[in-house]
C-alpha cells in the first residue's frame, strides 16, 4: 500500500530536502478556527500535518499541549468532530498527508473498527498513538495497517538496539524519533546527538525518520532537518496560537496569521537545511 505519506516523502527526496511536519490540536481554540489554520498550513510550508486528538489526560504532554487539549474540549471537540475537520480539509487538499496524534482511550470508546473506517474515509493517512507501544499492537496498530492507514511509531533515546526491531516491525509511513526523554515542550536535544540517533535508527529501517520535541526556532528546525528526513514542531505553534487569543481564550483576528507566520519562518529553516545523508 502507498499512502499520501509515502508519496510525499518520495517527492521530497526528489526535491532534495527534508519534511516540515507541523502539529496543531483539533478544535483549538474552536473548530472553525482550527480548520482555517490547518487549511493555511500547506501554503505556509508544512509538508505533513499532525492533528492532535484532544484528551483530558495526556500523560506524555507538557503544559502547552495539555492546555491546548483542554481548550479544544471546552470548545466541544470530540473525536467525531476531529474527523469532520479532516473531511472538511480534504475538500480542498487531496495531497497533504494528515496524521492524527493522541491517546488510545477516545479511539477505544469510539470503537476501533468504526474509527478506522471513518478515519480512512475522511482522508486520514496515519496515526500516532502515544500510549500504544508494540506490546499492544493487537489493539490498533495491526487493524490500522489492515485498514490501509500508516501506524507511525515513536522511538526514543531509551529504545535501545535490542528493542528497535520490535518497535519498527509494524511501523510504516515514517518513524518519529523523540529526541529527548521527556514530555512535549521540554528542552531540545543537541543536534550531534540527534544525528547519531537517526543514524542508529536508519541501520534498522529504510523508513524516513522525523525528529521532534523541543524545536522552537528556524535555526533549530534547520539543524534538525539536516540531521533527519523531517523536523516536527508542535509546542512552538501551540504557544503562538495561545498568545494570539483574547483574555477569555477565544480566537482573535490575528490567530490564523500568527500560526501561519510562525510556520513560514520555521519552514524557511527546514528548507535551508542540506538533506540528510541516506
Amino acid at each position: 500500500m502507498t499512502t499520501r505519506i509515502d508519496t510525499r516523502f518520495a517527492e521530497l527526496k526528489k526535491q532534495g530536502r527534508s519534511a516540515f511536519v507541523t502539529f496543531i490540536m483539533a478544535g483549538d481554540p474552536d473548530l472553525a478556527t482550527s480548520l482555517e489554520i490547518i487549511k493555511t498550513l500547506p501554503h505556509a510550508g508544512a509538508d505533513i500535518i499532525e492533528i492532535g486528538m484532544p484528551f483530558t489526560d495526556p500523560m506524555a504532554d507538557g503544559p502547552s499541549i495539555q492546555a491546548a487539549g483542554l481548550r479544544a474540549l471546552k470548545a466541544g471537540t470530540t473525536l467525531k468532530k476531529t474527523l469532520d475537520l479532516v473531511r472538511a480539509f480534504r475538500k480542498d487538499d487531496t495531497a497533504t498527508p494528515l496524521v492524527l496524534m493522541g491517546y488510545y482511550n477516545p479511539i477505544f470508546i469510539y470503537g476501533v473498527d468504526a474509527f478506522l473506517a471513518d478515519a480512512k474515509s475522511a482522508g486520514v493517512d496515519g496515526l500516532i498513538i502515544v500510549d500504544l507501544p508494540p506490546e499492544e499492537d493487537d489493539e490498533l496498530c495491526l487493524p490500522a495497517m489492515r485498514a490501509g492507514l500508516n501506524f507511525i511509531r515513536l522511538a526514543t533515546p531509551t529504545t535501545d538496539d535490542k528493542r528497535l526491531p520490535a518497535v519498527l516491525a509494524n511501523t510504516s509511513g515514517f518513524v518519529y524519533y523523540v529526541s529527548i526523554t521527556g514530555i512535549t515542550g521540554a528542552a531540545s536535544a543537541d543536534s550531534s546527538k540527534v544525528a547519531a540517533a537517526v543514524a542508529r535508527i536508519k541501520r534498522h529501517t529504510k523508513l524516513p525518520v522525523c525528529v521532534g520535541f523541543g524545536i522552537r526556532t528556524p535555526d533549530q528546525a534547520r539543524a534538525t532537518a539536516s540531521a533527519a528526513n523531517g523536523a516536527v514542531v508542535g509546542t512552538a505553534l501551540v504557544d503562538v496560537l495561545r498568545d494570539s487569543l483574547d483574555a477569555e481564550g477565544r480566537a482573535t483576528s490575528g490567530t490564523v496569521n500568527a500560526v501561519a507566520d510562525m510556520v513560514r519562518s520555521l519552514a524557511q529553516g527546514v528548507r535551508a537545511a542540506p538533506q540528510a545523508a541516506e
Binding site: 522511538a155 531509551t158 529504545t159
Partner: peptide
C-alpha cells in the same frame, strides 16, 4: 490490564 504507556517508559 496491559501495558499502555509511552515508548520512553516501555524499556524501563
Amino acid at each position: 490490564g496491559g501495558r499502555f504507556v509511552a515508548e520512553t517508559l516501555m524499556p524501563l
